[in-house]
Amino acid sequence: MKRIFFRNKFLPYLLIAPQMVVTIIFFLWPAGEAVLQSFQREDAFGLHTTWVGLANYRALFQDPAYIYSLQVTVVFTIGVTALALISALLLALAVDRTTKAGSTYTTLLVWPYAVAPAVVGVLWWFLFNPTIGLMPYLLSLVGYHWDHALKGDDAMILVIISAAWPQVSYNFLFFVAGLKSIPASMREAAAIDGAGPVKRFFTITLPLLSPTTFFLVVVNFVYAMFATFPVIDATTQGGPADATNILVYKVYQDGFVGLNLGSSAAQSVVLLAIVIVLTVIQFRFIERRIEY
């Protein structure tokens, strides 16, 4: 907020109106409708709606399919976050060591971020295709029969790799920026005191990187839980037997394919609650990062 400001009665409303109109029509109204619908039940023809209170939510959390989807989401989210963060950190540490070629490597490593998740899904789906793909062929040489259309674990590995691949670039850029902001004098002092590279990493680099890491964990959680819809849709479509049916995909399936409005709305509201919690955590953390 500024100390001084323009005095004008109508102009500020005019300036803020477009944003407000779009927000209200396409964000608040639908979200409100989802909340209302989650307390209602519609009959098969969509003629009558009755208020059912928390029945939709109760049904949801007693539904084994939903509980299973929750578990799948947890495994998937942790898998994507761990894979994307650890590989990005390794690459960032390596770039931090190279003196001359660093920027060339960076260019070669960041562009997957620009590839659409749906296209990423198609690429990995092709590589792992059981009839023609290269990876199943290589795996068969070591005696493993890959088939993500039948084996749930194979499908989970496929979606985790596909979803983590573009996210590595993103995490990499933030880790490189984080490493640059650690004063060289600290690491030099530790080296003079006799700490080797491994000890320096665990006692100095990693603790000083923790704000970046924490921020990235939250961002990766949000990415894995909400932005990976295209990856799932292009690779496994939630299958086989719901083994990769994460919450976001289930909302779409139950709502658009199954047309179960009440349940889909209740699922939307649960997801909304998760997003809000994650956003609040992220914002509280940013307050702290400034004083760090």
Binding site: N8, I16, F27, P30, A31, Y252, G255, S268, L272
Partner: peptide, 28 residues
């Protein structure tokens, strides 16, 4: 750059959109 009634309300309404990805409110 302006002070006007509902300024804070507008700010918070915009802030909320941050929390609502398309995937979540897809059907409505």
């Amino acid at each position: 750059y302006f002070r006007f009634p509902f300024r804070n309300l507008a700010f918070w309404l915009i802030f909320i959109t941050l929390m609502l990805p398309v995937e979540v409110r897809i059907l409505p």
